[in-house]
């Protein structure tokens, strides 16, 4: 345990703006966005956090400031310990974060996914394109204001769209997202289904 206390202390000595972050599992720190490349390089080279286990982001919803937080999960393969680093994006409207692809090549696709889903631009990324949605898709689906069902847009391929007359439509939700029931022994009961089956496309949702 002393080793993990050391890492956050050492980080805060080196980067005075770093603060401890509430965490239920691994030690975690908050960093200002500008310190991210230097601090992560310090953690990788001096503290042995040689593996970037995950890179993701949090959208604290419209109106919150800071709105976007990028989260790095580091792992030390020698010390067998995790460290979580969180950094708020400075701008709420055009969120950006320095890229760490120079430190971990594996950050490449993580940052592309993060850009695709949240619209956070990673400055210095060698090839910042969408990775899951197609080029030209106008939204960032994991943002809080984006509905799960989606928003009507043209198909990615104009020729196919012209041949079929199909669009990307908002999916019919019919009683909400389909969710599985964990722990059910009866597979028929456990199958993914809408939890509220009292309404669907043909029967209106009853007044609450």
């Amino acid at each position: 345990m002393s080793a993990t206390v050391d890492v956050t202390t050492a980080l805060r000595e080196k980067f005075p703006q770093a603060t401890l972050r509430d965490s239920l599992d691994h030690p975690a720190v908050n960093l200002p966005a500008a310190d991210v490349p230097a601090a992560l390089r310090f953690l990788r080279d001096e503290r042995g956090f040689d593996l970037l286990a995950d890179l993701t982001a949090v959208d604290w919803a419209e109106g919150a400031s800071p709105r976007f937080t990028v989260v790095y999960h580091l792992f030390s393969t020698a010390g067998h310990e995790y460290l979580r680093v969180a950094a708020d994006c400075v701008s709420d409207l055009e969120p950006a974060m320095p890229s760490v692809t120079a430190l971990w090549a594996g950050a490449d696709w993580h940052e592309r996914e993060c850009y695709d889903m949240f619209g956070i631009r990673f400055e210095g990324h060698p090839d910042l394109r969408r990775i899951l949605m197609w080029e030209g898709y106008p939204y960032h689906p994991l943002r809080k204001e984006f509905p799960l069902a989606g928003i009507e847009t043209p198909l990615p391929d104009a020729e196919v769209a012209a041949a079929t007359g199909t669009k990307v439509i908002a999916a019919p939700m019919a009683g909400g997202p389909f969710v599985a029931s964990p722990g059910e022994i009866n597979l028929t009961e456990a199958e993914p289904r809408a939890k509220d089956e009292s309404w669907n496309e043909r029967h209106e949702k009853p007044e609450a």
């Binding site: 689906p141 984006f146 799960l148 928003i151 439509i169 908002a170 999916a171 389909f178």
Partner: peptide, 17 residues
């Protein structure tokens, strides 16, 4: 029909294309 994937990414039935 798109099955349980009622989401922004899934074609809601291949008969659309």
């Amino acid at each position: 029909s798109g099955g349980m994937y009622r989401s922004y990414a899934t074609l809601q039935g291949v008969d659309r294309i």
